[in-house]
Amino acid sequence: MSSQEYAFVVLALVGTVSAVRVVTARNVVRAALYLVATLASVGAVYLLLGSEFVGWVQILIYVGAIVILFLFGLMLTKAPIGREALDNRSRAIGALVGLAILAGLVFLIQNAFAWNDPKVELAQATSGAIGEAIFRHYVLPFEAVSFVLLAALIGAVVLSRKDERP
């Protein structure tokens, strides 16, 4: 096991535990904060794997913007803060389905890949190369995504307007 691997395992464990806490926390704000931890660890994993651009984008967007959005949402909807049952009655089915999916995926993975063979080499993925890839080969999807963001922006504004009936 190399040192990267060790680092990776540690980060993975942190992320997983945080994720579990996200879905089991009784306090919605704590759930949001645990989400921060999870997202940050995922960003760190990206950096470890050598995708620096994506990693920093992850930190920026997810941790920086999306979590803030969630916190605003929780605040505006007066999410109950405090010890209260936040899980619904179909928890058992949810757990069952989740475990089924996990089992399935694990089975697939270990069926497809040998344990020792494919090793992810660390490689530098420079921002320049990514930029080149985006604006040369994937410029149309990029434009499409920008449209989506525009639509989402306008939509969010329209949806959140107060009714102006007298």
Binding site: Q4, E5, V9, V45, L102, L105, V106, P118, V120, L122
Partner: peptide, 15 residues
């Protein structure tokens, strides 16, 4: 060198 299955297990767990 990180073994790929570990990455994938992490992803599966999160999912």
């Amino acid at each position: 060198m990180i073994r790929l299955p570990l990455v994938l297990f992490f992803s599966a767990a999160l999912f």
